[in-house]
Design a protein around this nucleic acid. Structure first.
Lengths: 233, 233
DNA sequence: CGAATACTTGAGCGGCTTCAAGGAGGGTGG
DNA sequence: CCACCCTCCTTGAAGCCGCTCAAGTATTCG
């Protein structure tokens, strides 16, 4: 993690639901209080259990958000990217981080100290609005994870649910066929679906056999997403 | 669900992390835009899949928040009570409710339409701050559920985790012994831990046999919470 | 007091995990 | 260029845990 330079005012990371979708004034303000930082692949941006003393606005690069148990088993909650905010919940609640964030690639981010961020929220309407919306999105994502883990009876069901989720993001789901690149290893897929590496292998093989998945390395096609959704619930 | 009367300005539901912890001006404002409503036990305050067109501020009574699958299996995310807000995430994200909220007892609440609530947030700093904080708390709760479901290998582990959570809330955890009243049926416990009714029975029996639980109907004592935490992880 | 709901216990089965051993690909260095 | 290593993936075999089905008991409530 070392300092870098990147100007919020001219930055192009600004989706509809993106936290950085702010008024020009707020952006100037943000540029003033945020410290640019850089993380190398494999570095931890946050560590589960550490105090929530700052947030990170992701400028570039992707990050893996995980919760892990004492014995090392881990659950991947989601992959965050540019425009996402890390560490928000802990900063707002004044507690420890409940998740670990690990850089998957070299990442740029703006770090903002807890007090500064809270003041920033207090000062700018749009910041507190976007903060609330961001937390709402993260909440729904977490509920989705919990749902999957609890309600999908079989391993097939859980894995199918993960693949369909990636498919929906991947490319404007034509509902004819989903096509996307899976950047996760089977071990990571297992950690998203709450199952073992080996079971992921076997289940993917089953999907292929049943014609529900065409796979070339990391490139995946789900020819019949609708059927898939129905079949493996 | 029928109308009732309750004045936010004089209401005493105002914990530290409570949404209703607002300035007097905001409370007057709130009183103006909120419609008092009442739900009988068993009624649904929200239904999963319905559009998020209003939020409910809980004034009295408890509510069960669940996510359910197509086949009727359901996951209990948490029990909400006075001071909690229902439907926030859907209103903020502009989507459907991802959970169902069922009144466990007669409940009073203030309903606020989506547009009014968003305007209210925009108008009052403290409202948008509290909204963000509320969402952050809910998020951490959801992460906890997902964690439990994914990372606790065995049924014992999951159930122990649920009991310990109730124990922590129940009474100022002296760390000597936890004592609390469990208002959930075994079926509901099963739905929190992602297991079956029968397995809950068997596992509770095991806990009793092993001296980790003393149970008289709904009254529970965990004599050795620390050991319990370690043993069944 | 009867009916409904909640809890208990048993038996059997199946799917997932665990353990184990081997294969495929990509990168590095001799 | 090949040998080696590392990581990731694949497949098999065995065993166990929790689910399902089923029958019976306790408790709550009208």
């Amino acid at each position: 993690m070392k300092s870098a330079g990147r100007d919020c005012a001219t930055c192009s990371v600004r989706g509809a639901d993106c936290f950085c979708n702010l008024t020009p004034e707020s952006l100037v303000d943000l540029e003033a209080i945020g410290h640019s930082v850089r993380f190398e692949a494999g570095e931890n941006v946050l560590r589960q259990g550490d105090p929530g003393d700052r947030v990170y606005l992701m400028c570039s690069g992707r990050v893996k958000l995980t919760a892990s148990s004492a014995e090392g088993r881990q659950l991947i909650l989601r992959i965050a990217g540019p425009g996402d905010v890390l560490g928000l919940a802990a900063v707002l609640n004044g507690g420890d981080h409940k998740v670990t964030a690990e850089a998957l690639e070299p990442c740029e981010a703006k770090a903002i100290g807890r007090e500064e961020f809270l003041a920033f929220m207090e000062r700018c309407r749009d910041v507190s609005r976007n903060t609330a919306m961001t937390m709402a999105l993260e909440y729904e994502g977490a509920v989705l994870s919990a749902r999957r883990l609890a309600l999908s009876g079989s391993a097939s069901s859980k894995l199918a649910s993960v693949l369909l989720e990636w498919g929906r993001m991947g490319r404007g789901a034509t509902d004819g066929a989903m096509e996307f690149t899976m950047p996760l290893t089977q071990e990571e897929l297992a950690n998203m679906a709450g199952m073992t590496r080996e079971t992921v292998t076997r289940t993917l093989a089953k999907f292929r056999r049943e014609g529900m998945l065409i796979q070339k390395g990391g490139h995946m096609v789900l020819p019949k997403p609708a059927l898939m959704e129905r079949r493996y619930r």
